[in-house]
Nucleic acid binder design. Structure first.
Lengths: 213, 213
DNA sequence: TTTGTAACGTAACCTAGGTGACAGAAATGG
DNA sequence: CCATTTCTGTCACCTAGGTTACGTTACAAA
């Protein structure tokens, strides 16, 4: 177990009040997840509210027919409001959360969150801000699906990944990308090849290297 | 001016605490809007948080190139969390809100909302519930755009409208429908004709009559 | 009654993207 | 080393939906 208090302070110190940080230190559970690990799946119930203190999480939607679509990412310091609500109303999750890299989470027992809404102004703002960020990102997602062409979405996807993981090398198969964008492998291969011809990236097995962000 | 206290009690009485209802009565402004009236537009700032007490509001996204897309509806008793946040952070609206029928709104001054978050449990729950509902509806919208075919979306759209306005007669031109679904008039006419041939509806000038909900 | 206009119908055509099929290249595991 | 799997490239083909174009209705105003 690393220095939990230190990690909390580092990740959340600029967002939350000191006494709240201490409470978090007392009641939260520290958890490490490996890259590609599924943290929550559609239909599951969940009694802890996760806060990402290090790493990044991919949140996607999956419907009954197995169609999948990437919705947004959660980075260090963020939480997932959708999960929060899933906890508080004791409803089932409508989303799937997957670690994009090895990450560290704080798990907060839900019974605390309601109390903190009452006691801490910074907690209220944190939660509301989280909801707002998620809604805004959902809008961007809607924009992308509704208004952009697949090749533009693909390029945006690659650049987002690069920014998030801080590397121009994207370790993915075409199949994985196709799933995130809800397309098919053949189409992704085709469009990637076009982007390569334009000089925007180079293709390798399991790996794509962007020329620039 | 109608009996504002009565309206408030009727629309929000089962959601909010009595003392809060009284405060709302004191500080809110009552506003009537006509059908098709634009309540908020993209890029505008807004200093009041609206609560719909009667009628229904259509919320849509519009981007720089003038592309439009229907996101969700707000019905009686609901508020628009996106607007709330737009107020609290003093940021510009990312959405457009249009009255679908003659409607009545309560306008709450934003400086109250933060205070109420502290004082009233029912207010906190109301706001969080609103955010959650909006997020859930955004997910449904994403599902629809990403996974459904246009004819299915069109039928869903018509049924949603019928349910919302409580009538099988939908007063819209094909052009208006095309804008809400981000398609083109020709395509909508084509698909409507197909649905008519299948016996699911009948077509008239400015009007579509559904066979059933 | 005529005339102008907004709404609707429909045909011909185009393109983005999905599908199936198959071959070659790269890794992996005995 | 070979065998197997996994990934990628690239055919040919199909379909949903967008676009252009133009005619036909319905209705309102004069």
């Amino acid at each position: 177990m690393p220095d939990k208090e230190g990690l909390i302070k580092e990740a959340l110190g600029y967002l939350l009040e000191e006494p709240l940080l201490q409470e978090i230190g007392q009641v939260s559970r520290y958890k490490q997840v490996k890259a590609q690990e599924v943290i929550i799946n559609v239909g599951e119930e969940f009694n802890w509210m996760p806060i990402v203190i290090h790493g990044s999480i991919k949140v996607s939607r999956e419907n009954d027919e197995g169609n999948e679509l990437l919705l947004y990412y959660i980075e260090g310091g963020d939480t997932c409001a959708m999960t929060l609500q899933c906890c508080m109303r004791k409803t089932k999750s409508e989303i799937k959360a997957t670690a994009m890299e090895d990450s560290e989470l704080l798990m907060i027992p839900i019974e605390k969150t309601e109390q903190w809404m009452q006691d801490y102004r910074s907690w209220r703002e944190y939660i509301l801000q989280s909801y707002h960020t998620r809604l805004t990102e959902m809008m961007e997602t809607v924009d992308a699906i509704a208004f952009m062409r697949l090749d533009e979405r693909l390029l945006k996807y690659l650049k987002d990944q690069a920014k998030l993981l801080g590397s121009l090398e994207i370790i993915h198969t075409h199949q994985q990308i196709a799933e995130d964008l809800h397309s098919s492998r053949v189409v992704i291969s085709r469009l990637l090849k076009q982007l390569e011809v334009k000089g925007l990236l180079t293709l390798h097995r399991n790996k794509i290297i962007l020329s620039e962000i």
